[in-house]
């Protein structure tokens, strides 16, 4: 999945075009228990990092660094 697509999927989940890739995903104003579940599902369906729980996702300092980790083969 390309970065642009990843961002557009996130903007569908968060229901806003405002996605700052330098921001921590868990700091997005629409991050909650429901949107976080959709993020888990997005990752599960598109990347091979199946063990990434919320505690681990929270550790990425930006959406960009999360994406880079996910795209690593």
């Amino acid at each position: 999945m390309k970065l642009e697509k990843f961002i557009s999927e996130l903007s569908k989940i968060f229901e806003t075009k405002k996605i700052d890739i330098n921001q921590k995903i868990t700091n997005h104003k629409n991050w909650d228990s429901l949107t976080s579940l959709s993020v888990l599902s997005l990752i599960d369906a598109n990347f091979r990092k199946s063990k990434l729980n919320l505690t681990k996702i929270e550790k990425f300092k930006s959406i960009k660094s999360l994406y880079e980790y996910l795209s690593k083969k």
Partner: peptide, 10 residues
Amino acid sequence: GDEVYLFIMN
């Protein structure tokens, strides 16, 4: 919730 979800999908 998140762990149960991952467990099921995995």
